[in-house]
Simulated scan of single mutants.
Amino acid sequence: MPDVPKMRASRRPKLSAPGASRDSTEGRSPRLARRKYETRVRLLDAAFGLVAEKGMDGVTISEITEAADVGFGSFYNHFDSKEGIFAALVDWLFEEFADTLDQLAIGLSDPAEMIAVSVRHTLLRAIREPLWGQLLIREGLSRRALSRGLGQRLLRDTAIGISKERFMVADELMCVVSVIGTVLAGIAAELDLSTSSKRAVRARRVLRSRAEKFAENTAAIVLQAFGLKRHEAETIARRPLPAPPHNASS
């Protein structure tokens, strides 16, 4: 896997401060509530960038507060530990995006198309938002990721496909792990190519076309892992993508 480049200036997704809202601080003045909310978002945003660069184990609370321009002691007004802020961050990363994928799948009856849509949107978001993609690479096969959010949705959709005899796999869990590994490897390869290629300054339309083609090819490979024939897998992977729901992050 390529080294994670320094990408602090890259586009980041807009964080919505998981577990907190502007209206959640009853008994406080609107100004104080707003400041508390904004500080929490800054801490999460800083943690997001640092984790994408260094991994969770390599980040300290002092680095997070320094990057967020927040006093060290103020950190504990929002999170009880480093693990606490990371849990909130990963919850947002996997749960929020998994919810978006569920909305995209509304109206789809074919489990194969549901999987293809999820794979393509995941790859396209990772390419469009490199920091998000790097964090997904680092955490995608962790126990936390597999037990929640994206991992659980993939297990669920795989089970649906098997029950409908749409998928033919010998070992459900190992197939899911293999699929996740394929997607993560694809993201890593594409991000490395995008950051190292001298052609990365080409017209955005050309870059977008390449990314979409890459996402389609990866989805076709994934569907073949579920037992579909190559021609059918490629046909499904090339179907028009459902439009993201309004205000979705993908």
Results as ranks from 00 to 15, higher is better:
Met7Ser: 10
Ala9Ser: 13
Arg12Val: 07
Pro18Ser: 09
Gly19Arg: 03
Ala20Val: 06
Asp23Leu: 06
Ser24Ala: 05
Ser29Arg: 09
Leu32Met: 13
Lys36Ala: 15
Lys36Cys: 11
Arg40Asn: 09
Arg42Met: 12
Leu43Glu: 03
Gly49Thr: 07
Val51Lys: 09
Ala52Ser: 14
Asp57Gly: 14
Ser62Gly: 05
Glu66Ile: 05
Ala68Val: 01
Asp69Tyr: 06
Val70Ser: 10
Ser74Asn: 08
Phe75Glu: 02
Asn77Gln: 10
His78Pro: 02
His78Asp: 05
Phe79Trp: 08
Asp80Gln: 09
Glu83Leu: 07
Ala87Met: 06
Ala87Pro: 01
Leu89Ser: 00
Phe94Ala: 00
Phe97Met: 07
Ala98Phe: 02
Leu101Asp: 01
Leu104Ala: 04
Ile106Ser: 05
Leu108His: 01
Leu108Met: 07
Asp110Leu: 03
Glu113Arg: 12
Met114Pro: 07
Ser118Asp: 06
Val119Glu: 04
Leu123Ser: 04
Arg125Phe: 06
Ile127Tyr: 08
Ile127Phe: 08
Arg128Val: 00
Gly133Ile: 04
Leu135Gln: 09
Arg138Ser: 13
Glu139Ala: 10
Gly140Gln: 04
Gly140Asn: 01
Arg143Pro: 07
Leu150Pro: 00
Gly151Ala: 00
Gly161His: 02
Glu165Ser: 11
Val169Asp: 08
Val169Trp: 05
Ala170Arg: 11
Leu173Trp: 06
Leu173Gln: 06
Met174Tyr: 12
Val183Ser: 11
Gly186Met: 10
Ala188Asp: 12
Ala189Thr: 10
Asp192Thr: 12
Thr195Asn: 05
Ser196Pro: 04
Arg202Met: 15
Ala203Gln: 14
Leu207Ala: 13
Arg208Met: 09
Phe214Gly: 01
Thr218Ala: 02
Ala220His: 07
Ile221His: 03
Val222Leu: 03
Leu223Ile: 02
Phe226Gly: 00
Phe226Tyr: 14
Leu228Ser: 04
Lys229Ser: 10
Arg230Lys: 15
Arg230Trp: 12
His231Thr: 15
His231Tyr: 14
Leu241Met: 11
Ala243Arg: 15
Ala248Pro: 07
Ser249Leu: 15
